[in-house]
Design a protein around this nucleic acid. Structure first.
Lengths: 329, 329
DNA sequence: CTGTTAGCGCTTTCAA
DNA sequence: TTGAAAGCGCTAACAG
C-alpha cells in the first residue's frame, strides 16, 4: 500500500496524502480527514525507508552497551528507550561484548541508519570515538573524551566515601578488585580508592583487571585474603556478590572477618548480608544522554557538555568495624 | 558521498559501483579492486535507506520484550542479537512495559523497517498478534498461538517437578504466587501446579495476578502465611527473592518454617539461602527463535513450528521437609 | 563484463 | 489549499 494508491482512492494528488501526514496544517481539515480515513481503511503505513531517503531523517537512534546482561545496563536501556519513544524514535540496541572490534562493527552498521548514537562505557579508543562522533551526533556515557558530549556517573565520589567509611571503621589495609582496564569507570574507581587511601594513610592492594562477573568475584577472594586486607572494594556489585559467595564458601564471615563493598547498587538489598555499595544512576544517565542527543540532533549545535552525576555510599550490612579493632575493644 | 561520485571518480557507471559491493562476482576482479579502493579513499558508505527502498530489504530485525530490566530477558536479548549479528542484521529493541498498547505501538513503528520480528512474552491478544504476523515474518517466544511459529519454554514441566518434590518432602498445602494474568508462562505454571497438586492430593491456594517484582514477592508473604501453606511456588525468581527477604524480615525461617521455590533461575545461586528454582532457557529460546525467523525470512515459507524447551527443577537450599513432618520424626 | 534506464515511495519546491 | 514534477541514492532488468 503506497501513497499513490491512497491518493487514487481519495482522488487527490500524492503530495496531498503526504501532507496529510507530515504537514496537516497545510491542508483543509476536511481533506485531511478524508485522506486519513481512506488511509486507515486501506491500511496504509508510510514507508520508512522512502521517507528517510527523501528527508535524510530515519527516526532511529542507536544505543551500544558492552553487555546487556550486566544488570547495570538494563535500567539505562530502558530509560533511553523511554526517552526516545516520547519523540517517536526507534532504538537499535548493540551489544559489544566488551570487545572494541565488535563495538566498531556495530557502530559502522548503525551509523548509516540512525540520526544519533548513545555510546555507553565504550571500549574503543578516543580516536575512533572521535571519528564516529564526527559523522553522527554521538553522546557518551561513562567515558570522558574532551569535545564530545558526555554524561558521567561519578562513582569516584561514592567510592571515596566508601574508603573513608572503611577507614573510620578501623580498616587499615583494603583491597580494590578491578574491572576492565579499558573502562573509564574502573580507572575512576581505582583512582578514588588510591587517592582517598593515601589521604587517610591506608594501605591498598589492587587486583588486576578483569571482566566483571560473579566468577571474577569468586576468584578475587584468594587475592584479598592472601593480601591481608580486612576490607575489599569491588569494581561492581556483581563482582562483590561473587566474593560474598566465595567468602561464605570458605567460612570467612562477612562483615565480621572481612568487609566488602560493591559498586552500582544493582542488586538492591537482595544479597545476604545486604550489600553495602555505591549508588548507581544509570537510568538517569540514559535519560540525560538521550535528551542531550535529541537536542544536538535538532539544533545541530554540539556544545561541549560534560554532565556529571555524583554518587554516594549506601551502607547496608557487609561492612563493620575491623576485626582488629574489635579485639582491642 | 554517493555512488555516483565514486563512479565519476573511477570513470565507470554507477551500476558498476553498486555491483562492486553487492555482486562483486559479476565484475572483473580488477574493476572491483579499483572501485573499492576509490570508495575507501573517498569514504563512501552505501546508503541504507536507498538500498532498502530499492530492494525491500532493510537488514533489520525487531525484538520486543515486556521488560528489559527483568533479568529473564537480557540473556535472550543477547542471544537474539548474537544470532542476528552473524547474518549482518541489526536489531531494534522495544520495551512494552507489560502494556499491550505500548506493544502495539512499538510493533507498528518497527514493522515498517524490519524484515522480521521476534515477539517475546507478548501481552497482546491472539488476534492482534495474528494481524502483525500476516504482514511480517514473526516468531513468538513464550506464547502459544496456533499457526504462528513459536518457541516455548515449558516451565510447566519444571514446576510439576517442583510440586512433586515438595509433596515428597511432606508438604500438603502449597501456595502459588501468580504473575501477570495475560502471561502465557503464568497460565502454564499455574496449571502445572494445580494439576500436579490434584494428582498428589495436595491443597493449593493461589495468589492473585500481579506484575512480577521484588515488591510483589514481599506482598505475597502475608498471603502464604495466612493461607496456612508450608511451601510456596513463586511465578519467578524475582518474586521469590522478595518473599525470601520478607520472610527473613518477619523472622520466618526458610526452609525450616516454609519452603520457597522460584522459577527461571535468573539469580543463580546468589540468594541466601540459595534459591531452589526451575531452570530457564531464555538464551536458547532467543537463539532458536532468531534462527527460525531468519529461516522464514529467506524461504518465505511459514511452517507451523511449535518448538518446546523442557525445564527442570534445580534443588538448592530453600526447600526442606515440611515442619509438621519433622515434628513427627 | 559493463552501461542504460527505469523505478522503489516519499518529500518538497514551485506553480497554479 | 492543492497539483506537478524533480529528485533522494541505490538496484535490477535489459542491452550490448
Amino acid at each position: 500500500m503506497t501513497i499513490d494508491q491512497v491518493a487514487a482512492a481519495v482522488g487527490v494528488n500524492r503530495s496531498s496524502v503526504s501532507r496529510a501526514f507530515s504537514r496537516p496544517e497545510m491542508l483543509s481539515p476536511e481533506t485531511v480527514a478524508r485522506i486519513r480515513e481512506a488511509a486507515e481503511k486501506l491500511g496504509y503505513t508510510p514507508n520508512h525507508s522512502a521517507r528517510a531517503l527523501s528527508t535524510g531523517r530515519h527516526g532511529n537512534l542507536a544505543l551500544v552497551v558492552p553487555d546487556v546482561a550486566n544488570p547495570f545496563f538494563p535500567p539505562m536501556i530502558r530509560s533511553v528507550q523511554n526517552e526516545a519513544d516520547h519523540q517517536d524514535y526507534c532504538v537499535f540496541l548493540g551489544n559489544s561484548d566488551e570487545d572494541p572490534r565488535q563495538e566498531e562493527k556495530l557502530l559502522g552498521r548503525f551509523s548509516g541508519q540512525v540520526e544519533g548514537i548513545v555510546l555507553a562505557s565504550p571500549r574503543l579508543s578516543d580516536e575512533r570515538i572521535r571519528a564516529f562522533a564526527e559523522v553522527k551526533p554521538l553522546v557518551l556515557i561513562n567515558r570522558d573524551v574532551a569535545g564530545i558530549p558526555r554524561v558521567l556517573i561519578d562513582s569516584g565520589s561514592g567510592v571515596a566515601e566508601a574508603v573513608a567509611y572503611l577507614a573510620q571503621q578501623g580498616h587499615r589495609r583494603i583491597a580494590y578488585v578491578s574491572g576492565p582496564s579499558s573502562s573509564w569507570s574502573n580507572k575512576q574507581r581505582r583512582a578514588a580508592v588510591k587517592k582517598t587511601a593515601a589521604e587517610l594513610d591506608l594501605d591498598v592492594i589492587t587486583m588486576a583487571a578483569q571482566v566483571p562477573s560473579y566468577e571474577a568475584g569468586q576468584r578475587a577472594v584468594s587475592f584479598v585474603l592472601e593480601g591481608g586486607a580486612t576490607a575489599a572494594v569491588a569494581f561492581d556489585d556483581l563482582t562483590a556478590q561473587g566474593m560474598l559467595a566465595e567468602f561464605r564458601e570458605r567460612g570467612v564471615r562477612v562483615p565480621r572477618d572481612v568487609a566488602v563493598v560493591g559498586c552500582d547498587d544493582v542488586v538492591g538489598a537482595t544479597t545476604y548480608p545486604a550489600l553495602t555499595t555505591v549508588s548507581n544512576r544509570a537510568g538517569e544517565a540514559g535519560q540525560i544522554a538521550t535528551r542531550l542527543l535529541l537536542d544536538i540532533m535538532t539544533t545541530r549545535a554540539v556544545h561541549d557538555v560534560r554532565y556529571v552525576l555524583e554518587t554516594h555510599l549506601v551502607v547496608r550490612e557487609t561492612t563493620a568495624p575491623a576485626a582488629a579493632n574489635r579485639r582491642q575493644g
